[in-house]
Design a protein around this nucleic acid. Structure first.
Lengths: 158, 158
DNA sequence: CAATCTAGTTTAATAATGCAACCATAGGGG
DNA sequence: CCCCTATGGTTGCATTATTAAACTAGATTG
């Protein structure tokens, strides 16, 4: 690679998200964390990834404020990894990924679980995107607008 | 890597999606395609990725039925890459990624664009997840249920 | 018909990933 | 106190992926 491309300071928010959590393991670690997994060894067992990789990923997630370490909680003298607010904010992304598989995968019969609402136990609806005045939007109904920014000099830039 | 782990036949739909489009470039290629980009050189210019990688990614996306090649359209004798229905279905994932950055990024002032609805030009709302009976759900209101599957033998499995 | 554009392929270097083996600390048994 | 196991890593090395840059070959343009 001669240096792997970083999107950390890209002006596209999608690229920025991908830079933060856009690899297989980070996303799956957050998925497990949302299930309540918090211990190093539990992550390692459930995901089956190499421990050194887990170490690196956990550290990166902590550095980015997606996970935080807590001294313990279940009595044992070890630490645990807990989601921050930012980390819990990844939930819609995971739901979107899940629903894409459910809708388009060629072997949906291999999918083992369904996302349901706790209260009724029924499958959730598809994620919906609305305009401010309440119209349901699809990709074609949207556009990108440059964010108007007033810089120090007072000039208007994109 | 000694063979990168594949999630192609994982039973988790999130893992399956990640296996298909869970790398930086694939996601960004689809983003560009949603903007109407369809030519090899355009993708390469806009994303700034190495051409060999673009070749591999485009081929993988076509193999997976996310893009399809069409013989031409603007007269020139070259081919173009177009999104399939499955490809356009990635849109909510990209919206979720975008909104996560918008909400949690530490330098939101570096984000250059806003997603608006075409009709009014106003920013869209956050993606919303509803239960079948219309309640707005957050992560804590949901659970995973094993998908009941009736196998050949007639036994019920998870 | 020479120059340039398109859509790649090839090559060589560098970076990331994975496996396995090792290490340090805590707690428990004897 | 000594040995054993579990937790939470670290280190080394082999393999694989990504990249930039050079090269091709057909299509288009001047």
């Amino acid at each position: 690679m001669v240096k792997r491309t970083s999107f950390e300071h890209d002006d596209c928010p999608i690229a920025r998200s991908l830079d933060a959590i856009g690899d297989w393991w980070s996303m799956l670690i957050i998925r497990e964390a949302l299930f309540g997994i918090s211990r190093f060894s539990e992550f390692q067992k459930r995901l089956g990834l190499a421990k050194n990789i887990l170490t690196v990923r956990l550290r990166a997630l902590v550095d980015q404020g997606i996970l935080k370490t807590a001294p313990a909680s279940d009595g044992s003298a070890y630490q645990e990894y807990l989601l921050t607010l930012k980390g819990r904010g990844v939930f819609p992304i995971l739901v979107a990924l899940r629903q894409w598989s459910e809708e388009f995968d060629e072997h949906p019969e291999e999918i083992a679980t369904i996302l349901v609402d706790k209260e009724k136990g029924k499958p959730v609806r598809k994620l919906e995107l609305y305009s401010q005045d309440g119209r349901l939007l699809s990709a074609g109904d949207t556009a990108l607008k440059p964010r108007a920014v007033v810089k120090q000099g007072g000039r208007l830039t994109a």
